[in-house]
């Protein structure tokens, strides 16, 4: 009897053959696994939402005391002083300046390192250098903080004698060193993902290795490279320890890297480590600052998302 005729005569059978019946045990196991997986995925979402809710809630109390206008325009941030001022801009300027210094260092160094590793280094060199580079990302940030304060700043002071002990240049460069591995590693992965056929196409046109790397591989990998930059920006903006140790903790409305200053994160640890009463305005100011930090990170992420979309290449 062939199967085709069976299918044509469904009336023959009213009960389902046991070999074709739904396997409830398997079904339930699948469901449970699916549920557990979803739970893991949701935990990240819930944490994010919880953080946002707390930030917004506590900031709301803060903004009942301080107008948003003052918050954004007052050139001073002195919430713990007798004469309290609540202008976030000094902290924003410190954060942006240090991040800018970090990226000005890390973007060229990281990108060139990635190009070298992906396009020029031999297999053996790459396999040796990459793990070392990634190890650099695992060094505790407090070590980098003292590295900035005790080594980099004194070295910089030999070049710029006027540089104060606490400044933004030294920690900026050190944060740059810290994020080089992120940029190099993620960009290198993106460049290695460019199919060999595209490189061969360039070489077959008589391109040199350098021309192939710069004019074909880099543009082909640009969306991954931009992703690496975004990761580095978020990392630089959020970096706390290095800044708290080596930049001085004086909020200072300046974009000059030679000045000392505080960043949003440095302020948050500084205040959080003191004993501020719950619900006081100084306590709430932490959350307002945190909210600004989150918005800044979000802004750069969204920017990166659209840049990446614009550059996205399909091989």
């Amino acid at each position: 009897m062939n199967t085709a005729t069976q299918v044509q005569e469904p009336s023959q059978r009213t009960t389902i053959s046991p070999r074709l019946a739904k396997n409830y045990r398997r079904n339930i196991t699948e469901r449970i696994i699916e549920f557990l997986l979803m739970l893991c995925a949701l935990s990240a979402v819930f944490t994010t939402i919880a953080i946002v809710v707390i930030l917004v809630y506590e900031s709301y109390s803060f903004f009942e005391h301080v107008s948003v206008f003052d918050f954004l325009t007052d050139p001073q941030w002195t919430p713990l002083f007798e004469d309290a001022h609540y202008g976030i801009m000094p902290l924003v300027s410190g954060t942006l300046t240090i991040s800018f210094v970090a990226l000005a260092f890390a973007v060229p160094v990281g990108t060139i390192a990635a190009i070298y590793l992906s396009e020029f280094a031999s297999h053996k060199t790459r396999e040796t250098v990459k793990p070392i580079l990634e190890l650099l990302a695992g060094v505790p940030t407090i070590a980098f903080g003292y590295f900035a304060l005790l080594l980099v700043t004194p070295l910089l002071q030999m070049v710029f004698p006027d540089l104060p002990t606490f400044n933004m240049l030294g920690p900026g460069i050190v944060i740059g060193i810290m994020v080089v591995p992120y940029i190099a590693s993620v960009s290198e992965d993106a460049m290695r993902a460019v199919p060999m056929s595209m490189r061969e196409g360039a070489y077959a046109m008589g391109a040199t290795r350098f021309q192939t790397a710069m004019r074909v591989v880099t543009p082909a990998a640009i969306s991954g490279i931009v992703a690496a930059y975004i990761l580095a920006i978020s990392r630089a903006i959020g970096e706390t320890m290095v800044v708290a140790i080596a930049a001085g903790q004086q909020p200072n409305l300046t974009f000059n890297p030679m000045d000392s200053a505080a960043t949003i994160t440095a302020y948050i640890v500084q205040v959080a480590m003191g004993d501020l009463p719950h619900g006081s305005i100084g306590y709430q100011s932490i959350f307002a600052a945190g909210l600004v930090l989150m918005l800044m990170t979000l802004f750069f992420n969204v920017l990166g998302h659209f840049t990446r979309k614009k550059f996205r290449e399909a091989y």
Partner: peptide, 9 residues
């Protein structure tokens, strides 16, 4: 080549 391999340009 066998498979067209235009550059991302």
């Amino acid at each position: 080549f066998q498979k067209p391999n235009p550059f991302p340009k």
